[in-house]
Design a protein around this nucleic acid. Sequence first.
DNA 1: AACTTGACGCAACTGACCGTTGCATTTACC
DNA 2: GGTAAATGCAACGGTCAGTTGCGTCAAGTT
Lengths: 195, 195
Amino acid sequence: MRAAVLRATIAALVEDGVGGLRIEDIAQRAGVNKTSVYRRWGTREALLADALLSLSAAEVPVPDEGDVRADLVALARRIRDAISSPVGRSIVAAFSSGGRDSDLADVSRRFWRARFEATGAIVERAVQRGELPPGVDAQEIIESIAGPVWLRIFGPGEDVDDDRLARLVDIVVTGITEGAQEVRGREAGSEGATP
Amino acid sequence: MRAAVLRATIAALVEDGVGGLRIEDIAQRAGVNKTSVYRRWGTREALLADALLSLSAAEVPVPDEGDVRADLVALARRIRDAISSPVGRSIVAAFSSGGRDSDLADVSRRFWRARFEATGAIVERAVQRGELPPGVDAQEIIESIAGPVWLRIFGPGEDVDDDRLARLVDIVVTGITEGAQEVRGREAGSEGATP
DNA sequence: AACTTGACGCAACTGACCGTTGCATTTACC
DNA sequence: GGTAAATGCAACGGTCAGTTGCGTCAAGTT
């Protein structure tokens, strides 16, 4: 029954948006009396947070194709598809509707931590393979890939095609590797010059 | 008076959030009767859209320091500061609260188009200076810089320090330039190999 | 078997806010 | 001075939020 209410909450969220959530409606969808919902969750926000938390417990499939760029492109494609879907859009909107110190903000933080942790495996494997220099920050790379996709969809609302994703991954990966060489080169040069 | 209501709308938005907007409260803040607000704007969403539109008409100062990286770092810093502020957060939350085809979505699109257009000047100047290869897509570059900042603040809610901004700009700029050389190299090589 | 406990359903209630309407009043423009 | 548009004011019906008291049912306890 708890599951039924949470499912109904997500359904109502997708259909009516964050602002249009009505406890009575959710209860009806779940075949439950509204009183029960109030008794169990108390607040609309707590209910929403619980529903989103249960949803974000889903496993995050991480691409593993033996090549960084391929992995990152696949990841970017999944992110794009996820946040383009009605459910994804609703979830994101719900997250950003809460203030900084609400229950939702806490759930949001957990959500993102889990995603970054999972997808960081792509970078780790790449470092082991020698495709990326050791010492790179996995979260920074994932951010650099996912951020632009995110911004484009939630900002101007334009869609992101596969070519753009490929270019984006190219920019980040070569930027990381070439930048690292550059730094190493600079360090090597300064070692001989300063002492 | 119209201005007073719009100002009051923004103030109420920042204070109470998108969901907590009450027409009567806005009217009171503006020293106006709520009937007038209803007559002029009709819907809460229309009022909010108008207020946000008036706000986004503000000029966007574009850094011009004679160097791409410096310009982009300055821009990134401004973006970070803007969306970290209470007003900025509220505005973004308001934008993402509307569906895809609401009045708000339209305002959002205009908002972003204006920003990308203005900031694109940075890239154009860089191309003229020879710092970036000709033919680069200005919007892609701005997206690549602003996206990660955006994602980090609105996702995990972590703050972005200046070092991270500098690294980010480094990655993108070298990724663009080196990637372009790489492409030119590949093209030059394949020209001789395939025919 | 009788009892206790806890969860849920049901109905009703108060209160807040929404959006509307009819009317008086002001303002501005001709 | 007259007219039309914009605003203020008060009151309204309607919807939903939460709350409360009471009845029901199932599970476990003794």
